[in-house]
Amino acid sequence: MDGSSIKMVNREDQHEFSFLNISSNTVGALSKESAERILKVRNINEIHQLMYVPIENHEDLKWLTHSLHKAIMDEKDVSVALELADLLYFFIVPAYKEELMCKEDLSHMMDDILFILDLWTDENIIELVDAIQYELQKVERKGL
C-alpha cells in the first residue's frame, strides 16, 4: 500500500476525531469479509492484517472493536489472544484512543476486552493490558 492511499480524515461530532482513511479500492485494503475470515480462523500469521481494514467513521471502528471483542471472548489459544492484544496496543489504541474513550459504546467494549484479556495469566498479555489501560487513562486525564 503506498503512502498516498492513507490519509487522516477529520470528522466532527461532539469532538473532532481523526480516522485512518484506507479506501476499500486501495490495493492492500482488507474487506470486512476478509477480516471476518481472519477473526474466524485466527491464524496468528494473519491477524496483523486487520490493520488494513478501512476505518473511515465511527461505525467502522465500532464494527472492528465489536469483532475483536467477540474474537477475544471466544479465544482459547494464548498465542492468538496475544496477537489480538498486540493489534489493539499497536494499531487500534494509538490511532483511535480518543474515540474509544469518548464514545460510550466503544468505551464499554474496551473495558470488556481488557477485562477478558486480563484473565489470561500470560505475562505478555498482562503487560499489553496494562499498557493499553495506561494509554486510555491518559485520555481520561486530559478530560476528553
Rank of each mutant, 00 (worst) to 15 (best):
N43A: 05
I44N: 07
N45L: 11
N45K: 14
N45W: 12
E46D: 02
E46N: 12
Q49D: 07
Q49A: 11
Q49R: 02
M51H: 01
M51R: 14
Y52D: 03
Y52K: 14
V53W: 01
P54T: 15
I55S: 10
I55F: 15
N57W: 08
N57M: 06
H58T: 09
E59Q: 14
E59A: 10
D60C: 08
D60V: 01
D60N: 06
K62G: 01
K62C: 00
W63S: 01
L64Y: 00
L64M: 03
T65Q: 06
T65H: 03
H66S: 00
S67Q: 13
K70I: 03
K70M: 09
K70P: 00
A71D: 02
A71C: 02
I72V: 09
M73K: 08
M73N: 05
M73I: 00
M73E: 13
D74K: 08
D74N: 14
E75P: 08
E75S: 15
K76D: 03
K76E: 13
K76G: 15
S79M: 15
S79W: 12
V80K: 07
L82V: 02
E83G: 03
E83Y: 07
E83C: 12
L84G: 12
L84V: 12
L84N: 11
A85W: 09
D86N: 06
L87G: 04
L87W: 06
L88V: 12
L88F: 07
Y89A: 07
Y89S: 10
Y89F: 04
F90E: 06
F91W: 02
F91C: 00
F91Q: 04
I92N: 11
P94R: 03
P94I: 07
Y96V: 14
K97E: 03
K97Q: 09
K97P: 03
K97I: 10
K97A: 05
E98C: 07
E98H: 09
E99H: 06
L100M: 08
C102Y: 13
C102P: 06
E104L: 04
D105S: 12
